Structures are given as C-alpha cells and as structure tokens.
Simulated scan of single mutants.
Amino acid sequence: MSKVDLIIGGYERGGTTLLSEIFRANGFESGFECGVLLADEPAKMPETGPYWEMLLAGWRIEPETRAEAAAGDFDHFYNTLCTAAFPDHTGRFFDKTPRYMAQLGLCLHRYSAIKSAVIIHRDPRAVFLSMATRMLPNIPPAKAVTKKFKALTERYLDYFTGCIAHQDAENVLFVPLEELVSREDVWMKTLGYFVTGKPFHKRDGRSRFDNVGKKGMDLERIMGFESQLPASLQAEILDATRLASPFFADATERARYGDTWAEAQHRILALLAKYERPRSLVLEDGTFFEPFTYLLRYADVRRAGRDPVEHYQKSGKREGRLPH
C-alpha cells in the first residue's frame, strides 16, 4: 500500500515547493498539490475548488484514475493516486497542499493515518509582495500591495489563525522559510529527525518545478521586500498582521509587534483552563471543534470570557461562525 503519513502546508509562494523538494531528496514522493483533506471525504473533493482539476496535471494521472481514487475512503484515495502516479516508488509519500495550513487541525482529524505535519511560514511583507506582484504584474510592487492590501491581510491572518493552535504539538513542525534558507545545515537535521529519526541530506539536482532552482533560494531573494517596499508600507503590513507576529522574520520586530499575540494567547489559555477545554475536541454531533482557534478567530467571544464550546452550540453555529 502507498502510505501517505505526512502533510505539508504553508502560504502560497511561501516555500512549500522548496520544502517538498527537500523531502523528495530524502526518499519521499508526491505530486505538485493534492487538497483532498479539504473535503469531508474524497467523493466531495470536486466541491473544494481547483484541486480536483489540478490533480490531473499535478500528479500526471488520467481522469479515470482520479474517479477511481475518489470512489473510496482516504486510504483508498491515496493508495490509488500514489500507485498510479509513482508505480516504482518504494519509499514514503507526502501530501503537499498550502491551504492545509489554514485548516490544519481539521485536516489532521479527517485522516487518522496522517502522523505529522510540517508548516512552513514566511514574513508577511514577503508574502504580500509575492502575491500582489503575481496578481498585478504590470504595476509597481508597492502599488500592487496597496491595491490588494485588505485581501492580503485577511488571507495572511486566516492561515495563521488556522494553524497556530498546534504550535506546541509534538506531531507538527513549524519551519520559518528565512531560517531554512539561512541555516540550512541546522534545519536539515531538524526536519530529518522530526520525520525519520535521522538527519536529512541536502538536495542536489534540478527541481521538476520552475520556481525552485538547483540550490534553492538565497536569503537576499527571500528578503527582497526590504528593497522593493518603502519602510512606511512595511510598517503598515506589520501593524495589520501583528496578531501573527510569531511569523515575523526579525526577532526585534516580533518583540515590537508581539503584544497583540501575547495578550490573545494568554487570554485564550486562561479561558481553556477555566472551562477545562482542550485545544481540540469532537462535539456530540460529530463536529470537529477547536476551542483555541475559535477564541482566537472571534475576539468578541474571547473578550467576553465565554466558554467557546457553549458559545458555539448556543449561538455561534446559528450565526455561521466556524468551529475551527
């Protein structure tokens, strides 16, 4: 059986492809993106956005194989997909999908065979710059960021909120892209020990994907926002995303903007202790619920000092609030 027991998530254009190539160089295999864990079950995958269509080219499979994969449970899906795409591979497989970062707990819950997750994150200024110039390639970078500022802020915080409850989990490793590039030797050991119990070796050879060079990305390129965005716009980005300060590249800036996250985390942990709630649980009706994420996502519930489970059951669900 083709075993998939690791997922990789992160910001789009935030290093997930580079991370995937490191895993490929150390005995793992995968297609470009999958996304099946964003669906309640494989049969519902066509409802989750572009991933259903992307499977054909990303995994180099035929429509018939895709249909067969979706006809069973997650075990059947991954086994069918991996066997068809990589019939000669005898090592382990992983599922790399950036969006998993925004729904990390739910994705891990949906398929119990997934033993671990690696989340690669990146400074918001770099993500804003990369995404904005991709969306609006024909105007100056700073202007593109300004035009897309609100959407980029919401997206960045959504991904942060959806994963940070697992920052201390033994089966989740958070990897700062800036450190992966600048301290490669250290992170090859960390990544390797996390998933295999021994250090990874550096990759050599060209990636099958154009956006990853032979030797990966250099730090100057990773920190390109410093020269392409004015200081005032950089400060505006950091202020708008200050809740996500643990993901800022510079320690000084993490400290300068860290009050919002520190206060929110302290309040959340106090409320979880008060109401004796774990970070994640399953409600009686089968709903996967993350009290930590719920309190982080909904500041009004947090400030009111409410029991997150009780609030969701009595009013949050009716109001359309997300349980995770």
Rank of each mutant, 00 (worst) to 15 (best):
Y294A: 03
R302L: 14
G305V: 03
R302K: 02
T293V: 13
V301Y: 02
V282T: 13
V282I: 10
V301L: 05
P278W: 08
F288D: 03
R303P: 03
S280P: 03
R302Q: 04
R306E: 15
E284V: 13
G305S: 04
P308Y: 03
D285T: 03
D300T: 12
V282E: 11
S280D: 15
Y298A: 10
D300Y: 11
E276W: 06
V301I: 15
L295A: 01
F292N: 00
L281K: 13
V282H: 05
P308C: 04
F292Y: 14
R277V: 09
R279L: 13
Y294T: 01
T287A: 06
A304D: 15
D307M: 01
Y294F: 14
G305C: 04
F292V: 00
R279S: 13
R306L: 15
D307F: 02
R306M: 13
Y298V: 05
L296A: 12
D300G: 08
V282G: 07
E276Y: 11
A304Q: 12
A304F: 09
A304V: 09
D307E: 06
A299N: 11
G286A: 05
L296H: 08
P308A: 05
R297Y: 10
A304E: 13
G286M: 02
S280G: 08
P308S: 05
Y294S: 02
P291W: 07
G305E: 11
T287M: 07
Y294I: 04
P278C: 06
P278T: 07
L295K: 00
P291K: 01
R279P: 08
F288V: 06
F289E: 00
G305L: 07
V301G: 00
T287G: 09
R303A: 14
E276G: 09
F288Q: 09
E284M: 07
A299F: 07
L281V: 11
P291F: 10
E284Q: 12
F292L: 05
P308H: 02
E290Y: 11
P278H: 04
F288A: 06
Y298G: 04
E290F: 11
R297M: 12
R279T: 14
Y294M: 04
R277D: 10
V301C: 09
D307N: 08
E284G: 07
L281S: 14
F288K: 05
P308K: 00
A304L: 11
D285H: 00
E284F: 09
D285F: 06
A299V: 10
R277T: 09
F292E: 01
L296D: 05
F292P: 00
R277I: 07
E290G: 12
F289H: 02
R277G: 07
S280V: 13
P291C: 08
F288N: 08
E276V: 10
R297N: 10
A299Q: 12
T287V: 12
R277A: 11
R302P: 02
T287Q: 06
T287H: 08
P308Q: 03
L295H: 00
F292M: 03
F289I: 01
S280Q: 15
Y294K: 01
D285K: 00
R297E: 13
T293R: 06
S280W: 10
F288G: 05
R277W: 12
Y298D: 08
R306H: 15
L295W: 01
E284K: 13
P291Q: 04
L281T: 14
P291T: 04
D307Y: 01
P278V: 02
G286P: 01
V301E: 01
L283G: 11
T293S: 14
G286K: 03
F292I: 00
Y294V: 03
D285V: 06
R279F: 13
Y298R: 04
G305R: 01
E284W: 05
